[in-house]
Write a protein that binds this DNA or RNA. Structure first.
Lengths: 215, 215
DNA sequence: AAAGAAAAAAATTTCGAAATTATCTGGATT
DNA sequence: AATCCAGATAATTTCGAAATTTTTTTCTTT
């Protein structure tokens, strides 16, 4: 992160750091300290942190400033449960509203994802340098799954919850192992199959099965 | 709204104005103009608007500032649908997790609500001065209905969606009429009954019935 | 040793000006 | 008449200092 960066880069870097565990859970985020890191005014950091609080990655309390979100098994379960609900609903509506274009996009997103996951599973089970690639592809698959739901507010909520989900899962994902990736490869495939088959009940079950390890 | 007010009061006043249609849908909110209204710095208004964007009452776009949310039948349906989903899920989980205290609180909240609604229905069907009282009691009832869901993230999402729902419904609620209030008195009663009876399926249906006019 | 109060230090918030970007207006060109 | 461009204007963003609030430290009392 280069000093003197513009605020878009600062936002992006802080978002990455918030998701990837650079700060501890519940840690105080002081604009006065971060201004040194980023080479800008503390008030600019405040702006960025307020925007990050809008997507749920930061807790803000008037007069007491900013903290990273707390983390616990209960919170992970809560976020997971909420994500399941959103994704099930979004997928169900997408199966109703989505046409061939949606199927094509979902198939393409899945293709990319399974390609990365297969490589990771074969090599060592630890994504290493592929973490960002895998993370982006995983998000893309799930976001595309619900993309035809015709509900802007659901999509917006999902995007924010997905970030929070990744943030909460960071520590748990450190030790993946090949078995983990082989399992989720199968789970992603199952989701794709039932979604393309437009079987709502099975799709809801597949999404739940995919995420239940985090409940 | 008195000049020189502190930022909590500014936040509250702007929130009221955003919900109650003081600004037009999609209207530009200029900190430079609002600083005059509130007797503070434009940067303070920016802070407040960023915080209001976190709860979904304001749209923010980098470099292009703030606008009130657009409004349309499609958006109203979307917000309503999302609210139904949250409330059904929240109520279902509350019926599982909630004990006697939850029942008592829900009964009390309903009692207050039906009292206000009965008076409004009897008088004219137009809440007039009672609008704020009714609005608060209506929120209290629905929020209490889901309060035992044991999901902080669902509650937080509901609170924000409820505000957005009120904002979107503002114009439609101007001409209530006595029939409207008699109908929703019955609907609130139905929700209370099935919730206390812990009948999930009926409760989901009652919530949907209560809100379906806005779909 | 524990509790409370006061002072000091640190952090947050607000301010208003400067820097930067977006939007609007008028004129030129096709 | 429609489109494009340059300049002016308006608005947004960033800055860093001042004002305000919170937290920490130190001292006193029980």
């Amino acid at each position: 992160m280069v000093k003197g960066a513009d605020t878009a880069a600062i936002y992006s870097d802080l978002q990455d750091k918030l998701i990837n565990g650079f700060f501890g859970a519940g840690e105080k985020l002081k604009p006065g300290a971060l201004q040194g890191t980023y080479g800008c005014s503390a008030n600019t950091i405040r702006d960025v942190l307020l925007r990050l609080s809008a997507v749920g990655l930061v807790s803000f309390e008037l007069q007491r400033g900013f903290r990273t979100k707390p983390s616990s098994q209960a919170i992970r379960s809560d976020v997971t449960r909420f994500r399941i609900m959103l994704e099930q609903e979004g997928a169900a509506r997408s199966m109703v509203h989505g046409g061939v274009a949606w199927e094509a996009q979902l198939t393409a997103a899945h293709h990319k994802l399974v390609h990365i996951e297969t490589r990771i599973a074969r090599e060592s089970g630890a994504p290493g340098d592929d973490k960002a690639l895998w993370s982006a592809a995983e998000y893309d698959f799930h976001r595309t799954l619900i993309s035809a739901c015709d509900s802007p507010i659901l999509l917006e909520s999902f995007e924010s919850i997905y970030l929070q989900f990744r943030q909460q899962m960071f520590a748990l994902e450190r030790d993946f192992g090949g078995d983990y990736f082989r399992a989720i490869i199968a789970e992603h495939q199952a989701i794709l199959d039932v979604a393309l088959g437009r079987d709502e009940t099975a799709c809801r079950a597949a999404i739940h099965d995919h995420l239940k390890r985090n409940l």
